[in-house]
């Protein structure tokens, strides 16, 4: 059997942000891949660079992003970082989609939901050579709003985002993502900004859609239980570095990296509610990031070498990779 190339393979991604204090060096050489039909997860504290990584893949970084380097190989042939904007637009319209972290800021505040959704549908369908009339666009929009189980699609269609609840807004964002999700759905913390009571519903909805459409998924979440349940493989991102990756079950039962261990310990247990005790210290300042292993200022095992050299990601067990000097045999 010929091995299929991954759907997306990101290699050695660097991204910075220009700020008035200097350049924040956020992504620090990140590599990952996702195969067709696979579901992978990303976990890590707030500010670790998860959203930045996803925006890099889709090439939708904000204007102050800088020093963007690396490769994003699509199906083993196209480098999404290098193709023309026109080609990139086609790929976005046809295959890749993202559910944004905060549905409030992800919807344009001064246009009605229906209008925003119709524009998205219009250009996605145009890409397939189908020109829909206004009426057909509206029909399709209402159908999508129904698919994400919004109770009164017509009302939502005619509403401005601020007239909807957080959960409804997130469903709208999901409906938008559905327009062009044929291959990959990126769900960037789809429930973090929502009421606890509806978090489950939204996750279930995403799961349902993904199963129905046989999509590949990247799930980013602080809900570690959900990531474990819904994904095959998980990456741990800390301060712009992948520090560990393995099959999800393995990773959650047998974390190796000191950061992952702390992260899992800090997380509220599956039954418990609220926020865990947190990891002592905080994500470093990206303008002057720590030398060597970026985790060393917070790591209780840090040694001299950790401050000097960045640890490579090495395969410690089959399929279980860790970037930590503790696991580098010498």
């Amino acid at each position: 059997m010929v091995e299929e190339p991954p759907l997306i393979e990101a290699k050695d991604i660097y991204v910075g942000y220009k700020t008035y204090r200097g350049v924040m060096k956020v992504l620090n050489g990140v590599s990952f891949y996702i195969n067709e039909g696979e579901k992978i997860g990303f976990i890590g504290e707030a500010g670790g660079g998860k959203t930045t990584l996803m925006k890099t893949i889709l090439r939708i970084l904000p204007p102050n992003a800088t020093n963007v380097r690396g490769q994003v190989i699509y199906r083993g042939k196209l480098d999404l970082m290098r193709i023309s904007e026109k080609e990139m637009k086609r790929i976005r319209r046809r295959g890749l989609s993202m559910i944004f972290q905060d549905p409030t800021s992800a919807l344009n505040p001064v246009f009605k939901v229906g209008e925003q959704l119709m524009d998205i549908i219009k250009y996605s369908r145009l890409e397939e050579g189908i020109k829909l009339s206004k009426g057909e666009l509206k029909e399709e929009a209402l159908r999508l709003l129904e698919e994400v189980k919004l109770p009164d699609p017509q009302r939502v269609f005619d509403s401005y985002p601020f007239q909807l609840s957080g959960g409804m807004r997130q469903r709208v964002v999901i409906a938008m993502a559905l327009v062009s999700a044929r291959e990959l759905l990126i769900a960037d913390e789809p429930t973090t900004n929502l009421d606890v009571t509806i978090q489950d519903q939204i996750l279930r909805l995403i799961n349902e859609i993904v199963e129905k459409r046989k999509l590949s998924v990247i799930l980013i979440s602080h809900a570690l239980g959900a990531v474990r349940k819904m994904t095959n493989r998980t990456y741990v991102l800390y301060a712009g570095d992948i520090v560990e990756t393995a099959e999800s079950n393995e990773l959650f039962t047998n974390p190796l990296h000191p950061y992952t261990k702390a992260l899992l310990e800090a997380a509220p247990k599956l039954t418990g509610e609220g926020i865990g005790k947190g990891i002592p210290g905080r994500i470093p300042d990206y303008v002057n990031p720590p030398s060597g292993c970026r985790f060393h200022p917070r790591c209780e095992y840090a040694r001299e070498r950790c401050k000097r050299e960045k640890p490579p990601l090495v395969e410690v067990k089959k399929g279980h990779w860790v970037a930590c000097w503790l696991y580098v045999k010498r």
Binding site: L58, P62, N64, M98, N108, V173
Partner: peptide, 24 residues
């Protein structure tokens, strides 16, 4: 606003630049 998520979302769906620029 160019750095806001609603523009990232518009781009993520491949909307044409002029539509984003003059409308959204």
């Amino acid at each position: 606003n160019a750095g806001k998520d609603f523009i990232a979302l518009a781009k993520s769906h491949g909307l044409p630049d002029r539509l984003i620029m003059f409308k959204y």
